[in-house]
């Protein structure tokens, strides 16, 4: 399955987001050291009421946890913008 689709599927299941955007930035980093293993660079903007009362650190941990082994295998770098609907 397409990596972006796989990320999307997992984040949807974990957070039921009202808004979810994933940008594959891998080509911007093609050829650099970290990209050699094949892991991609992605940017995620996710809006979910799940993030309410969670610090930025906790929100990032929640996202990493939802992505599970993708973080080691398919994702080399992830930019995360995790918001609640009220923060939009």
């Amino acid at each position: 399955m397409d990596r972006v689709e796989e990320i999307k599927k997992r984040l949807k299941k974990a957070f039921v987001p009202v808004n979810l955007e994933i940008i594959d930035e891998s080509r911007l980093h093609a050829g650099h050291e970290g990209a050699k293993s094949g892991g991609g660079h992605f940017a995620v903007t996710i809006v979910s009421s799940c993030f309410e009362d969670r610090t930025p650190l906790m929100r990032h941990r929640m996202v990493y946890e939802a992505l599970g082994e993708l973080m080691n295998r398919d994702i080399h770098a992830l930019r995360i913008n995790a918001l609640t609907p009220e923060e939009l």
Binding site: K13, A14, F15, V16, S48, S49, C50, A66
Partner: peptide, 14 residues
């Protein structure tokens, strides 16, 4: 919870 059992609005509630 957030939402209802039929339409939960957060994965943790679901």
């Amino acid at each position: 919870m957030k939402g209802t059992p039929q339409f939960p609005q957060c994965g943790f509630s679901a």
